[in-house]
Amino acid sequence: MSNPQIIYCHCAYAQVVPKEVKEAVLRKLCDANIPFEAVADLCELSARRDAGLQRIVTTTGPIKIAACYPRAVKWLFAAAQARLPADSTEILNMRVQTAEEIFERLLNPEVKPNLPASEQPGAKPNLSSHV
């Protein structure tokens, strides 16, 4: 099994992610000397339909993203026409999880997919072309 791609979002333009959590996660990633993608702000990349998001989803293998709520991350990628694979994406939420928990999950080769599944009430197949 290939190593997961690791994406870290710094949420640079807002104070909603605790500073100490994002700094600790970033520091641990740097100290671990592993490859990862650090983005200043996923929202901005989504708004720009940045090709980097498509590059992430088209690269083979599991994806781990340290950012915010899985529902938000799922649809931020979708808005940029980059569909995250539901069966191999794990989102770590720096708004609510601790840096230790997040780092442990980022380094663990096992993936626990947690993108919200399509569900009622609005779910309808003909709207799914947006993802």
Binding site: H10, A12, A40
Partner: peptide
Amino acid sequence: PGAKRYHALQKLLEHGYTVTCTTE
């Protein structure tokens, strides 16, 4: 190296850049 990478990344991210850290 880790510490330098961290400080560099912090600076770049605060200025809005996307940074790929590779070990290649």
